[in-house]
């Protein structure tokens, strides 16, 4: 893989890592304000390393919930990373998912790394995008968390800077190239619709999981002439 194809991937990964750093800082501040210690806050960012689950956990604890009541919500929000593991394992290939590498790679399987990896067409670029986004994102998320936990209320509200618009915009941008096939467009629209319809009906985390069966059914029973490879070279 040439430097020409690496440098734009690194640039995009750095942009994701930058907003991960800013979000990490707000997580650190929120976590300490919710009654967790700095050490507990850092364990979450280092070991859980999954923004939605972390915010949910400290949210329940901060809202006065008994500690253990927060666990199922955090886990439910983490289940989607398990589904992401399937395409990522395929992208990393046999070498990338053997031995200790698999243990490290697994920790980096989150929304951002999955979106960056599947947003590329060439396998070598997909692997590079996964690792670049994962390593930079992990470092900045944790540095940000520590800064936020120490700085506390000095950290401004990320909403003021519009940072909360960056996550959905980035997922959309990264899924965009995949939407070249009609089949993928239907799957994406179906996932969004099902999730939206379920928001008032089921606990947090479930709406996104409910989109998975759409991909499974469509993948197992493809219509003739329509394949998910439509966007591939």
């Amino acid at each position: 893989m040439s430097e020409d194809s690496r440098s734009p991937i690194r640039r995009d990964a750095a942009a994701i890592a930058a907003y991960a750093g800013a979000f990490g800082a707000s997580f650190g501040a929120v976590s300490v304000a919710s009654g967790l210690t700095i050490a507990q806050t850092m364990v979450l960012s280092l070991v859980m390393f999954s923004g939605a689950s972390q915010f949910a956990l400290v949210g329940v604890i901060g809202g006065g919930g008994a500690g253990l009541a927060a666990v199922p919500t955090a886990l439910l929000l983490g289940v989607r990373n398990m589904f992401y593991g399937v395409p990522i394992a395929g992208i990393l290939g046999r070498r990338g998912r053997s031995g200790p590498r698999r243990l490290v790679a697994a920790q980096l399987v989150i929304d951002e790394t999955t979106a960056m990896a599947v947003g590329r067409d060439v396998p070598a670029e997909q692997r590079y995008a996964f690792w670049a986004t994962g390593v930079m994102g992990f470092l900045l998320w944790n540095c940000g968390t520590l800064a936020g936990a120490l700085g506390g209320s000095a950290i401004g509200d990320p909403a003021t800077l519009g940072l909360d618009a960056m996550a959905p915009a980035s997922f959309l941008a990264l899924v965009w190239p995949r939407l070249r096939s009609a089949e993928a467009r239907w799957v994406g629209a179906g996932g969004a619709l099902v999730a939206t319809a379920l928001i008032p009906l089921v606990p947090a985390g479930v709406p996104v999981l409910a989109a998975a069966p759409i991909a499974v059914v469509t993948g197992l029973f493809p219509r003739r002439g329509a394949t998910a490879e439509g966007g591939q070279r």
Binding site: R80, G190, A192, P207, A228
Partner: peptide, 23 residues
């Protein structure tokens, strides 16, 4: 499984965008 793996992120990330917007 490869077809499902290709479509899973499309379905789930689209759902995630919807949830971030409408929850």
């Amino acid at each position: 499984v490869r077809r499902v793996a290709l479509l899973l992120p499309v379905a789930m990330l689209s759902a995630l965008v919807a949830v971030e917007l409408f929850d």
